Amino acid sequence: MTRQAATPGGTLVLDSEGLAKAVLRDRVITRWLALALADDVRVITSTATLVEVIHPQINVPALKWALSRVVVEPVTEEIAHHATDLLREAGLHGHKHAIDAMLAATALAAPGPVTVLTSDPEDLTALCGKRLAAVKV
Rank of each mutant, 00 (worst) to 15 (best):
66 A>I: 03
98 A>V: 09
28 V>M: 11
137 V>M: 05
14 L>V: 02
60 V>N: 01
102 M>H: 13
103 L>H: 05
110 A>E: 10
7 T>S: 14
110 A>G: 05
137 V>Q: 03
12 L>R: 03
132 L>Y: 04
135 V>K: 07
107 A>S: 13
121 P>A: 11
125 T>D: 02
39 D>P: 00
32 W>E: 08
88 R>K: 11
55 H>W: 07
45 T>I: 10
116 V>H: 00
26 D>I: 12
115 T>V: 15
26 D>N: 15
136 K>E: 10
46 S>Y: 11
129 G>E: 06
75 V>R: 01
130 K>R: 12
40 D>F: 07
119 S>C: 02
65 W>L: 07
4 Q>I: 05
129 G>S: 03
77 E>P: 09
3 R>V: 05
43 V>K: 09
45 T>E: 08
124 L>R: 01
31 R>L: 15
67 L>T: 06
16 S>P: 01
23 V>K: 13
75 V>T: 15
52 E>C: 08
122 E>D: 15
77 E>I: 07
125 T>G: 03
29 I>G: 09
2 T>A: 08
70 V>E: 05
5 A>C: 00
88 R>M: 03
12 L>Q: 04
52 E>W: 07
105 A>H: 10
68 S>P: 03
94 G>R: 11
61 P>R: 08
128 C>I: 02
84 T>K: 06
32 W>A: 10
47 T>R: 14
24 L>I: 00
84 T>D: 12
52 E>I: 08
10 G>W: 04
100 D>E: 03
11 T>C: 06
93 H>S: 15
113 P>D: 11
103 L>M: 13
18 G>V: 13
9 G>W: 10
112 G>V: 05
73 E>S: 14
98 A>Q: 13
46 S>M: 12
85 D>Y: 05
54 I>C: 06
69 R>E: 10
57 Q>L: 06
23 V>Y: 09
53 V>S: 03
12 L>S: 03
20 A>Y: 06
63 L>P: 01
35 L>Y: 02
123 D>H: 12
28 V>K: 15
107 A>M: 07
22 A>F: 03
133 A>F: 00
91 G>C: 06
3 R>M: 07
37 L>M: 07
4 Q>F: 10
120 D>Q: 10
118 T>E: 08
32 W>M: 08
54 I>T: 12
86 L>F: 01
95 H>V: 10
61 P>M: 09
49 T>H: 06
20 A>I: 03
20 A>N: 13
38 A>K: 12
127 L>G: 08
110 A>L: 10
9 G>A: 08
113 P>C: 11
63 L>H: 04
27 R>K: 14
58 I>W: 09
116 V>I: 15
125 T>I: 11
105 A>Q: 07
109 A>E: 01
94 G>L: 07
1 M>Q: 04
86 L>D: 01
63 L>N: 02
25 R>C: 05
4 Q>H: 13
79 I>F: 00
17 E>D: 14
133 A>P: 00
136 K>L: 02
20 A>L: 15
52 E>T: 12
32 W>P: 06
3 R>L: 12
